[in-house]
């Protein structure tokens, strides 16, 4: 099976939302392969299908048709419980509005998924503290989300997503609520983690800074891939892999 070679593989994925008699096609036959270790972004205007694509790759939503392979598993064949297990073990999420649990400290938020995995306390703390010092959160472990800046909260969210060492991180407009300097610092952190751990990153974004930093940019329009560019950031060269638009 060739599917295991890719971190993510989509084959002719279709999704239509229905409200009463109104049908809104969100994805219209998207096929895509993303290799392990890629630092990719999806971009496009509102309604182009970015969010739906991320939801379907993350197992948060189901496609009407097609195949979705993530970490060697066909998501269309998994139950809700199996999808939850896959998300816990193999996928990390970074949300636009951070979405930290307000009643937990930064450290407790970051170790939340490790705890759900059943890791002992000393190992959890060791992992989180190491990650915190790597991404500039050392000393903030005991603060609640309300006591952190937006950039710090988003870093905690990245730590929460990274700490389980997932195969894939899905980040939905992670810089949308951050100022430019903070956004650059966050992208530095994520790019560093991508290079250091080989974790696959897929963003959805409107932010030109993210598009600039992504080594692959998938442009969506009307639920289809309009352009798929792979960049070599060393020489700023761009290779268009396809144009379905």
């Amino acid at each position: 099976m060739a599917v295991a070679e890719w971190a993510v593989e989509l084959k002719d994925v279709r999704k239509t939302y229905r409200t009463g008699s109104i049908e809104v096609p969100a994805l219209r036959g998207v096929s895509l392969q993303i290799a392990a270790g890629e630092f990719a972004a999806t971009a496009g205007p509102s309604g182009s299908g970015k969010t739906t694509l991320l939801n379907i790759i993350g197992g948060l939503d189901r496609a009407d048709a097609g195949e979705i392979w993530v970490a060697g598993q066909n998501l269309q064949l998994l139950s809700s419980s199996e999808l939850a297990h896959l998300r816990l073990q193999r996928i990390g999420f970074v949300f636009q509005t951070y979405n930290l649990l307000p009643v937990l400290t930064a450290l407790e938020n970051a170790e939340f998924t490790l705890l759900l995995q059943g890791m002992p306390a000393h190992k959890r703390r060791e992992k989180v503290e190491k990650l915190f010092s790597e991404i500039g959160l050392a000393g903030l472990e005991d603060r609640r989300p309300a006591e952190l800046s937006g950039g710090q909260q988003q870093r905690v969210a990245v730590a929460r997503a990274m700490v389980t060492e997932p195969a894939l991180i899905l980040a939905d407009e992670p810089t949308a609520n951050l100022d430019s300097a903070t956004a650059i610092a966050l992208l530095d952190v994520m790019e560093h983690l991508n290079r250091a751990t080989g974790t696959t990153f897929i963003f959805s974004t409107h932010d030109p800074q993210v598009m600039e930093r992504a080594r692959r940019l998938i442009r969506l329009r009307d639920g289809q891939i309009a352009r798929d560019e792979t960049r070599d950031r060393q020489d700023a060269g761009v290779t268009a892999k396809g144009d379905a638009g």
């Binding site: 939850a84 297990h85 816990l88 999420f93 949300f95 979405n99 649990l101 998924t113 759900l116 929460r160």
Partner: peptide, 16 residues
């Protein structure tokens, strides 16, 4: 509801 959605997205099971 949103918070529960986040928990569920992170892998918390309905039972939990």
């Amino acid at each position: 509801r949103y918070e529960f959605g986040v928990c569920k997205a992170l892998g918390l099971k309905p039972r939990q």
